[in-house]
Simulated assay, not measured.
Amino acid sequence: MSYHIRFHPAVADDLDAITRWLIDYAGPQSAARRLDEIEATIASLADLPHKGSRRDEIAPGLRAIPAGRKAVIAFTVDDDAREVHIHAVTYAGADWITRSKSRGR
């Protein structure tokens, strides 16, 4: 049985900023490919919610996985509710740790 994916409201801004940056840097086709890779990685968490490295030193239960070559997805898993909570999506060295901490649980 798969988990439901929930997004912190600011993740939409994360993805929008990544899109704009990629379009400016590499063009719209490359941006679309990278975003597809990021979205596929997020979708895969519905079936494999416990993958990635646990980063309890940052926040209890926080996990991080790479996506789209230079992206990082930070998330927690609520097994009781069968939900994956996406806290932040960053790209190209952006500070996913600070974003994850500030967005809490």
Rank of each mutant, 00 (worst) to 15 (best):
D80I: 02
H85L: 15
A88C: 09
I5T: 12
D13Q: 12
D24R: 14
A12V: 10
G104L: 12
K51G: 05
G104N: 10
R20I: 10
R82I: 09
F7T: 02
D95M: 02
E83Q: 15
A32E: 03
R63S: 10
I5Y: 09
F75T: 04
F7N: 05
T19E: 15
R82V: 13
L48K: 13
I38K: 02
Y25Q: 14
I42F: 00
A67M: 01
A81W: 11
V77H: 08
H4F: 13
E83D: 13
H85C: 14
D36L: 01
D79M: 06
S2A: 11
A94I: 09
I18F: 08
H8P: 14
T98C: 00
A12Q: 09
R99D: 04
A12G: 06
H85Y: 13
A31E: 06
P66A: 03
L35F: 04
G93F: 13
I97T: 11
A26V: 13
L62E: 11
A94E: 15
A40D: 04
A81T: 11
V89K: 02
G27A: 11
P60G: 09
H50N: 09
R34T: 15
G93M: 11
D47G: 12
L48A: 14
R54P: 02
F7P: 04
L45G: 12
V11L: 00
S53A: 14
A10P: 00
S30I: 08
R33F: 10
R69L: 08
D24F: 07
A64P: 09
S30A: 12
V11K: 00
G68K: 01
G52W: 06
A46H: 02
S102F: 07
A64T: 14
K101V: 09
D36M: 01
G27L: 13
A43C: 01
T98S: 12
T76N: 13
D14N: 14
